[in-house]
């Protein structure tokens, strides 16, 4: 038996969200026709037979979850299985399904003053004790809409990373200190509204940064460090990342890093990492171990 939890978190684009809030009084057509998400499906490759069951639970304060069959027109009443209010749940079997979030605020709030009401909700629910709703906000899921509301910030400065804090901890196992093994924690605030949802960085061998140009590859072959990305999170939530090691022959030529790096430096890239930060920005923490 294999069990897991899939968190589906709304993605709020700052500028789009604010535009929608302004339009909400006139009834945005986006709200009347939410975009469904196909439930992820899992399969055990080596199994002779398997049964998959998905429990869909709505923990969002500000949205209902509409559950649809895997196929069929969304506007067809036969396609929609059920609508989950907060704390409601339903089960989906082997055939899978689709779900869509529908904002509650837009349905229940009077048209006049809708913008203020939405903003107040998100602000209050982030502070315990200021609203009756907080009696049920123990789950991190229920905080997600609140965080999205608080973090709607538009960047009007340059696209850059304001600061990067790197903490290096030398590794010691069974009392023996490994000469070059170390753990690294990188903390930075990803810029919001960047051109891409991905934050990228490379790890290069420091020695070659100090001695650019042709070097002695034979000397380095036996000492190339390996990098293991342990965890990547944004605002405390683990996020998707990709890590690729470079073969020796392709290290120098593959990456175009833009104007921030000295193009004269011939680095020996060990690893290139891409972190899916979204466009909201947020505190990115990356932990990795170098051996």
């Amino acid at each position: 038996s294999i069990a897991g939890t899939i968190l589906i978190i709304p993605r709020l684009r700052p500028h789009v969200a604010s535009e929608r809030a302004v339009q909400s009084g006139s009834g945005s057509d986006n709200d009347s026709d939410p975009v469904p998400i196909v439930l992820p499906r899992f399969s055990v490759l080596a199994a002779d037979s398997e049964t998959t069951s998905t429990i869909i639970r709505n923990e969002s304060e500000s949205a209902t979850v509409e559950v649809y069959n895997i196929s069929g027109d969304l506007r067809d009443a036969q396609t929609r299985r059920t609508v989950l209010q907060r704390s409601g749940m339903t089960r989906s079997g082997n055939d899978g399904g689709r779900i869509a979030l529908r904002s509650v605020s837009r349905l229940t709030v009077p048209q006049r003053g809708a913008v203020e009401h939405v903003a107040d909700n998100s602000r209050f629910s982030a502070k315990p004790g200021t609203s009756d709703r907080n009696k049920t906000t123990h789950s991190p899921l229920s905080l997600v809409p609140s965080l999205g509301g608080v973090m709607r910030r538009r960047r009007n400065g340059p696209l850059m990373i304001s600061s990067v804090d790197v903490a290096v901890t030398p590794m010691m196992l069974r009392g023996v200190k490994y000469p070059n093994a170390h753990a690294v924690r990188v903390r930075l605030h990803a810029p919001c509204e960047a051109d891409t949802d991905w934050l990228e960085f490379g790890l290069a061998q420091a020695a070659s940064l100090l001695t650019p140009g042709p070097s002695d590859p034979s000397k380095r072959d036996g000492t190339q460090p390996s990098v293991d990305i342990v965890n990547v999170s944004v605002d405390g939530v683990p996020v998707r990342f990709e890590s690729s090691a470079f073969a020796k022959q392709e290290r120098n030529a593959m990456i175009s890093l833009g104007p921030s790096l000295d193009q004269e430096i011939q680095s020996d890239w060990i690893t290139w990492v891409r972190v899916h930060v979204g466009d909201q920005g947020g505190l990115v923490i990356v932990d990795y171990v170098v051996n």
Binding site: L159, V166, H182, V186, P225, L257, G258, I270
Partner: peptide
């Protein structure tokens, strides 16, 4: 050698601490 990240974006400040 300590492997510290090199970012594709410009960085305002980089602070490295060895604990």
């Amino acid at each position: 050698d300590v492997l510290v990240p090199t970012f594709a974006l410009p960085i305002g400040r980089l602070e490295v601490t060895v604990e």
